[in-house]
Write a protein that binds this DNA or RNA. Structure first.
Lengths: 211, 211, 211, 211
DNA sequence: ACTTAACCGAGACGGTACGTCGTGTCTTGCC
DNA sequence: GGCAAGACACGACGTACCGTCTCGGTTAAGT
């Protein structure tokens, strides 16, 4: 993982010797990274430009982040903390649909450019796509598992449900339209998708119980 | 579109004067492009390296392709001609499942690297993602429409079917797992996916017919 | 020696393939090098600044000169061609004195800064001091040998004269005052020096002939 | 002059408050400076490397020496105390020749590298060449004046002798060969040189007395 | 056979960004 | 207050590709 998160502080409370890292610089770098990433794609993004925009020396960037990818991953995750929580309305369909609409909203916003940069750059940089998975996908998916589990507990979904298949079926089409841009990606798409997939899941339920 | 396809020949049969374009060079360039693309990602690919590998001068590359994207798009589509045709078994489920398994096989092969490069690079280059849509996605999707239509005609699928929603639901999860690499992408995934989605579609059929 | 002198032309008349080297750039680089060298010392001179001043890319400088030293050596020798020829007055004392006065004049001029840079830089770069010897010292010393020989032929100097000892005795003090700056270096110094050393040389003559 | 010589102690005996300067550090820095200077030239010498080698922080170096030149000058003079005293044999020729042989021996030793660094670096740094003059050249030249004066007093040398001209004639050729390296610099050179120059000086004596 | 014109290789060119290194300054906590 | 540790802004380093250019030489179609 990137070095950008923490200073040299050990696990104990002791401070490392020497001048402490400038938190101001760290923030400025991450913020400039996001800003420039929204203006152009990942390959066009240059450390030179980030340093200039953040009013920081190149060496300071390189001191803390080994690669452009690590920096972008940090910048992304530093800005992706509180968004996109799952609601709990008492209905799986409702919970999923609301969260998917939120995701589409994010993808259509300026932040969508950052996600696209991350996923695009990640195709040639395993570290980058791993950062997306670890800091964006998995945290949300863990919440999604709970949402689905509530549905199972309430009897809305079959007990033997393949959660990953279900979630990929729900989110895959969104990611596909987002990345390939072959069709409109609006919030209604979330509803249609949710309807289609959950119907399929529930049917497997009833057919299972029928058998 | 890229200049790589045609020479200076006008619409009439007349040849332009002067030395004709070297077909050998063209092939060597496209082939080297694919070769190097499989070794590294799109951003790492350099025209310099392609020219050197193809034993061709840089100027020859630039003469025929305006950008790296155009060259990669050409190289990709020149190699994507006969793959991934849709079967016609008499069953939608069977037809789709077989084709999806084929797609997964391609994604897992060396050619998958090229697709990933195209989709990855395309996130910062509209021309590149457009090339993917026009030369890969749409030709296959047109066949998929026919496959689905046959299903409708046979009564396997409901008449008012949203084909794009259906196809994105079938393929989206494959693309998602391919690009994000958060879960195994093997051929069995095609079956499970096909089962889930078509069940959802058929259910909408029966519930519609029930109403 | 530095690559800066000639293009890729072989010894035969044939031109090398490819775009020929820009003579304009070469001149601009050498000229800027001298200009900047007069403004500051050798260590302060930067390739970056030379390229900027010559309106040339850094790569062009590095393509033709492997090190700053090679470039400076070339620039120096390109500008040191016609100066400081030895006169032929019929008197060794007169010939040497006139040439030494010329040398002192050069050392006191702007060009003196370049010589100082070369000799200073040469203390940590064998290539640089070698350039000074090969392109400045030896060509002049060869003329000096002839001047002394004329003196021997005329009987002004002893036949068994150690020319290198004599010439180092004449020029060494000039270089010493030039480099250490511990005493005034004006043109009269040449006369005094010439008087002292040639007297010593002639005395060895008469004492030899006396013996 | 460099700050390396004195602490904060005023002219009175009172000590300044706070931790006193570490004499150990000072010695280590000067010693490392000389050591590294012998390994590479003055431009290659870096404060960074000195601090690392002396196991001292960079700030400690900068606290006591304003520039690299000042540090090198200090290091040089700290190591040049007892060398190269002039003998007193009763013969000017003998005294000078012996001392010149000593100088050549120093120039050919490891310490010669330091002198070359000082003289080389001094061509772009007045402070450095001044340090060489003040701490090396003048102290020895003052002794040389006395040696020559003894020669005058004994009648070996003419009374109206231009001492600086004489000494530059004796030492200039040594410095020239040392710095330009165009000819062998061995101890025999001292004898030949001494012979030539003193002969010239004495001749001026006899011719003066003759006139 | 000769001209003509576009092609092709080679490779120099002005640029831009790279990632590294040393500078001299600073901020901290310990001694 | 000295000192180590080490972060910082700065500036130059030498390299790699970019996309453009300028050459000599090649290859056919049209005379």
């Amino acid at each position: 993982m990137a070095q950008g998160e923490q200073g040299r502080t050990g696990s104990d409370g002791k401070r490392a010797p020497g001048r402490p890292r400038s938190e101001e610089s760290r923030q400025a770098i991450l913020s400039s990274t996001l800003k420039l990433l929204k203006q152009a794609g990942f390959p066009q993004l240059s450390i030179e430009a980030i340093a200039a925009d953040a009013d920081v020396s190149k060496a300071t960037v390189y001191r803390w982040w080994p690669t452009k990818a690590a920096l972008v991953a940090d910048a992304f995750s530093a800005s992706a903390d509180q968004e996109l929580r799952f609601p709990n309305t008492g209905s799986v369909h409702q919970d999923m649909s609301l969260q998917m609409r939120q995701l589409i909203r994010v993808f259509r916003s300026q932040r969508g450019k950052v996600v696209a940069a991350l996923l695009g750059g990640g195709q040639s940089d395993p570290e980058l796509i791993a950062a997306f998975r670890d800091r964006f996908l998995w945290p949300r998916r863990r919440q999604a598992y709970q949402t689905l589990q509530r549905g199972i507990d309430r009897g809305e979904l079959p007990a033997g449900l393949d959660m990953d298949l279900t979630l990929d079926s729900l989110y895959g089409p969104i990611y596909m339209r987002f990345l390939i841009r072959h069709g409109e990606l609006n919030e209604d798409f979330a509803d249609a998708l949710c309807g289609l997939v959950l119907r399929g899941v529930e049917l497997s339920h009833s057919s299972q119980s029928a058998s």
